[in-house]
Amino acid sequence: MEQVVQQLINWLALGAITALLAVGFSLLFGVLNVIHFSHGDVALTAPFVAMGVLIALPAAGFGVAIIAAIVLVGFMGVILDWVSIRRFRSAPPMMALVATVALGIVLRELIRLLYPNGSNPHSFPRLFEGTAFTIAGATVSWLVVAMIGCSVLTMFALTLILYRSPLGMRIRAVSQDLEMARLAGIDPNGIFQATFFIASATGAVGGLFTASYVGLMRFDMGIIAGLLGFSAAVIGGLGNMTGAIVGSLVLAGLETLAQAILPDGAAYRLVVAFTLVLVVLVFRPAGLLGRVPVPKV
């Protein structure tokens, strides 16, 4: 029983982190129609930015460094769009995709070269210490509680922004019909910048929790984290925020299950996760909650 509860807690923790990355992929795809493959790398710069802030301003404290990292990574997303991705708005999607892959490599290499001993893994502190409570013998740390709580709050805040605010109304208008949105006086560039900020800052929260959960930060952590976030978004249905959350929970569930029941399961968790992606792409190309557009005849 203890094992089952522990695995359920692990599932929710993993799902929470994945969802924070997956919603960014979905949001950016929904609005820009671009798969932003460097989103994972952008998100996973957050731990480095937080530690960088702490190195530069030791008096600031860890809490301030964390908030600064979330805001700075949000702006970094906006700047990366401005210097690179926006140049491919009218280009074939394949060009934009290759550009975002290249951007991810540039980011990783910059971290490796600019951060002190950037090639080596560095320890990253736990954002929250101690045990919160025990259920059926399984311990639940404050970090896991914070991860799940923050993820739920972030999703709630994103839902409010997207569905209850004037900004969200404009974001959805641009995602549904860019040309008509322009005719309605909406400046799409402003909407793209806002979307990049929201997606990157949300990803930064996920990046910080990822580093804190595993206790270290590495320059190339964004690759796998990004691929898992992207896969979760694809499983749920790219462009669909609820789909991204559902996809994250399904993916995390399968990873956790693989670790729990397979011999040497940890080694196979990615095999299982990406096999699920293949299965979904074959049998439900639009994802679990995505809808394939039906052409009108």
């Binding site: 109304m169 404009r170 959805r172 549904q176 019909d177 040309e179 005719l183 909406i186």
Partner: peptide, 27 residues
């Protein structure tokens, strides 16, 4: 005021939100 071919309403927004965007465009 612009009425494009095929109406081009924002399908995932409510009628009120479509009208609101039209209103704010002219402001």
């Amino acid at each position: 005021g612009l009425v494009p071919e095929n109406r081009r309403l924002f399908p995932g927004l409510t009628v009120a939100q479509n009208l609101c965007l039209g209103y704010e465009a002219v402001r």
